[in-house]
Design a binder for these strands. Structure first.
Length: 847
RNA sequence: GCCCGGGUGGCGGAAUGGCAGACGCGGCGGACUCAAAAUCCGCUGUCCGUGAGGGCGUGUGGGUUCGAGUCCCACCCCGGGCACCA
């Protein structure tokens, strides 16, 4: 790809010779290092820290180009920009490589960090590397563990027994967020199994309401906010008890008198339509309420449901009658006083609400389908709209069939005639007033399962003592580090489980023998606080000092992939709130990321480009030939930043040609090739000066709006215009030309930093362009003297006339009516109407 | 099914109710050259017309407006997310 035929020698644009020079300059001069006592206004620009997978791929390039542009731009605007970089360096790929090759994951990881750091530098990314953090660094491990202990003391980290997601390929449990809707693992793609295990959880559900409410104050893509809202899944309803009775409604002699099942519903208004009640197979009452004649059937059903993988349980196809089972028990509907049969079905989840629902086939489609399969009756309680032919009606309407029977006594409830909202209120109040139930808010969000049965992660700092039970490792014993003398076996089992030296220790409380926790933390724990550590990575007696965090946080602009919409971004929000409440982070820091930008993916032949798919286009090969500035510009120009990109559409050539053109235009010696003079200013000078100041406004606005592709288009158009003016007679005044070129270089400095720095330095005796102030436009040059007035007849453009930009309505109308084209189209008739928007447009409406 | 995006030349896209197609890619023609590359210049939505010019044109159909790619209503298609959460 080496261009042939372009001029050679010292005047040739040669990215290979200038790019390393400037990268070293920025590093050596600490140009983008900022101290915590910097007096300038502060800005915190952060790209999601990467998993070190080796040399950068195009996704990295895209991400870091946007972040780097913003860092350089804000710096030129006068801010102290915190732009740190680090590595999310725990994780399974390194451990899997260790299992394959026998090499320790640390060696593997450190090597890949160096490769990635080198790539990032070669892209031209500038960071305050003094602040670098790595998840697997013992100092970072220490503070991750310290944070875990604070959460443990506050009751926000707990050990719980639960049915959890087990990934048979990666040999570890996973959080709900890491399992896709089809029941496969987000990372490995394996079908997830269910296992009952004791695991560590973080109590994110305590923050469900805050996580929901605080979304409103964030400047985030709507898409991401909606995804978070869906994931939290708030739903309001009521819970109430239904007494377990026999088929005639009488109490059962084999059960205590208060035997009851509690149900949760968001539709108490439809209670009169309840024709059965459904329990989850894992509901604790199943065993006690099942009657003897149904016991065998129930046992078989429960065994099968528990053995079924999530993926099968979620399948909609198949015979519904096999997915439920009668229990022989009955429950009394408090609204009617009448018993309804109790069934089991796997579509009711044990982990949501009360694990039991009242089934209303008339107004719920799942209940309706189930009722059909089991031959259960349907009672419609909401009037159908005309023409409705489906099974269940879930919309609004007048209630019918909803009075309590006459023998229900003076306290009978009557919902007939009410709409859904009104009936909900009346039904809920009725339950509450009689002490039968209460309003309840449920969330879909579950506590965050953080245990991982893996070696290459942050060890959970907990001991198990036979005498004292669960004991936190004392803070002055941190960090707990995994041993180095470990062997990785092909089974994938964590070597910690069989490492005697790691496993056995003494209890800090009683001095007796104790066993270490062998699970490590989900790597999303590491990434939930790294942005806080960046503010104060030198802190040695706390994870960070509060004043340092207070001065930088929240992050002004966070940049990363949309694939983290629920995972990382939810966890990081949670931990920030928890640390704030614990007094570790400032009390008023409730959200970590003020603005979020999610960039599009890079696709190759329509598929996502990633390491696993071969990563066919290596960024460094392009840097080796066309240079980093061309690559950056191509990424900036190809599409709006938030959209997915097909690699085939990335126009390297046009960008390379453009930079060569800039080079020839700006090179001091090349001025001889242009027609420049020191005489009086001509119209050409006037036009170029206006274009120059217009460019300042356009590029600034485009940068502020993240319309980088438009900014690049403006650059190209501007260079074309200046070239043309400087080539044709009478040419340009030298100072007009210099102002145009210097302004171009200043504006280009954030986007194509190396070439801008090199040319500026050559033109200005070694000066550094990135330490110059962002240019300000001269307002007087933005006002044109004359403008092109659009003359329309009946809304169609028929002519254009030059008018003074100060022309008023009368002048514009006069100019329009004087147009020969308009005169001929009117054919002597008087216009029916003339609409003028001076000085842009006049529309003449014919009779 | 529900919720978000989005449909504009051969392609990526631009246009914050006022000149549709900026800028780039690709294509065609030309200059320079022994030749090529590179560079530079011109043309490049579509139809009618020798021409001047005119008709049509932003997924489809309606509407609002002097004027709609842009606003409103209905629909079609594509992409993404959610989906037994009671």
């Amino acid at each position: 790809m080496e261009p042939v035929g372009r001029p050679s020698g010292p005047d040739r644009y040669d990215p290979q010779s200038i790019e390393p020079h400037w990268q070293a300059y920025w590093q050596e001069h600490g140009t983008y290092e900022v101290d915590n006592d910097d007096p300038r206004p502060r800005a915190y620009v952060l790209c999601m820290y990467p998993y070190p997978s080796g040399a950068a791929h195009m996704g990295h390039v895209r991400n870091y180009t946007f972040g780097d542009l913003l860092t350089r731009y804000r710096t030129m605007r006068g801010d102290a920009v915190l732009s740190p970089m680090g590595f999310d360096s725990f994780g399974l790929p390194a451990e899997n490589a260790a299992i394959r090759t026998g090499r320790h994951p640390r060696a593997f990881t450190d090597e890949r960090i160096e490769q990635l750091r080198s790539s990032i530098t070669r892209i031209g990314g500038v960071y305050d590397w003094r602040r670098e953090v790595r998840s697997h660094d013992p100092t970072y491990i220490r503070w991750t563990q310290w944070i875990f202990l604070q959460l443990f003391r506050a009751g926000l980290a707990y050990r719980g027994h639960a049915t959890v997601n087990w990934d048979p390929v990666d040999q570890t449990v996973l959080a709900n967020e890491q399992v896709l809707a089809d029941g496969t693992a987000e990372r490995s793609g394996a079908v997830v199994e269910q296992r009952d295990l004791e695991q560590w959880f973080l109590r994110i559900t305590d923050y469900a309401q805050q996580l929901l409410d605080d979304l409103d104050g964030l400047d985030w893509p709507e898409r991401v906010v909606i995804q978070q809202r869906n994931w939290i899944g708030r739903s309001e309803g009521v819970e109430f008890d239904m007494a377990i009775v026999d088929g005639s409604g009488a109490p059962r002699s084999d059960l205590p008198g208060d035997a009851a099942v509690r149900v949760f519903t968001t539709r108490p208004d439809t209670s009169f339509g309840m024709t059965f009640c459904v329990l989850a197979p894992e509901h604790p009452l199943v065993a006690t309420i099942t009657t003897d004649d149904h016991r065998d059937e129930v046992d078989r059903f429960v065994a099968r449901a528990r053995g079924t993988s999530e993926i099968d349980r979620l399948t909609v196809e198949g015979d519904l009658s096999a997915r439920g089972c009668r229990t022989g028990a009955w429950a009394r509907n408090p609204f009617t006083g009448r018993p309804v049969p109790v069934l089991l079905a796997d579509y009711v989840l044990g982990s949501y609400g009360t694990g039991a629902v009242m089934a209303v086939p008339g107004e719920d489609q799942r209940d309706w389908d189930f009722a059909q399969a089991f031959g259960l009756p349907v009672i419609e309680t909401v009037e159908r709209p005309e023409g409705f032919e489906g099974g269940a009606w879930t919309g609004d309407g007048r209630h019918v069939n909803s009075p309590a029977p006459a023998d229900a006594g003076p306290e009978r409830c009557d919902l007939n005639g009410l709409d859904v909202a009104g009936a909900k209120r009346v039904a809920a109040d009725w339950l509450v007033e009689r002490g039968l139930g209460e309003p309840v808010v449920n969330y879909r969000l579950r506590d965050w399962l953080v245990s991982r049965q893996r070696f290459w992660g942050c060890p959970i700092p907990i001991l198990y003592c036979d005498a004292c039970g669960v004991v936190p490792v004392p803070e002055d014993h941190l960090p707990v580090l995994a041993p180095d003398d470990v062997e990785f076996t092909p089974t994938g089992q964590s070597p910690l489980l069989s490492h005697e030296g790691f496993l056995h220790t003494t209890c800090p409380d009683c001095g007796g023998p104790a066993r270490r926790e062998t699970d490590t933390m989900d790597t999303f724990v590491d990434s939930s606080w790294y942005f806080l550590r960046f503010c104060d990575p030198w802190s040695s007696d706390a994870p960070f000092r509060q004043d340092a965090v207070a001065s930088w946080m929240p992050v002004d602009q966070y940049i990363g992939g949309a694939e983290h919409a629920v995972l990382h971004l939810m966890y990081a929000r949670f931990l920030t709130k928890a640390l704030s409440d614990l007094g570790v982070a400032p009390g008023d820091l409730r959200e970590p990321f003020r603005r979020l930008f999610t960039q599009g993916m890079i696709r190759l032949d329509g598929t996502k480009m990633s390491k696993s798919k071969g990563n066919l286009v290596a960024p460094e090969e392009i840097i080796d030939t066309l240079g980093a500035d061309t690559l950056r510009l191509a990424h900036l120009s190809v599409k709006p930043p938030e959209e997915d990109v097909d690699w085939e559409d990335v126009g390297l050539e046009g960008c390379s040609r453009f930079l060569h053109r800039v080079w020839r235009l700006a090179l001091p010696d090349a001025a001889a090739t242009w027609t420049l003079h020191d005489g009086a200013a001509t119209e050409a000078d006037d036009a170029v000066r206006r274009a120059t100041h217009r460019l300042i406004v356009d590029v600034s606005e485009s940068f502020d709006r993240w319309s980088y592709h438009v900014a690049v288009a403006r650059f190209m158009a501007f260079v074309n215009e200046v070239q043309r003016a400087a080539r044709e007679e009478p040419g340009l005044r030298r100072d007009t030309f210099d102002e145009a070129v210097d302004t171009l270089l200043l504006l280009l400095a954030p986007a194509a930093p190396h070439v801008a720095a090199e040319l500026w330095s050559r033109r200005h005796g070694g000066e550094h362009v990135h330490e110059r102030a962002w240019p300000a436009a001269d307002e007087s040059l933005l006002v044109e003297e004359t403008v092109t007035l659009i003359v329309q007849v009946d809304g169609k453009v028929r002519d254009r006339v030059e008018v003074p930009s100060t022309a008023d309505e009368a002048a514009c109308v006069a100019a329009a009516l004087a147009s020969p084209r308009v005169v001929s189209l009117l054919g002597g008739a008087e216009p029916a109407r003339v609409v003028a928007r001076p000085p842009k447009v006049v529309n003449v409406v014919r009779p």
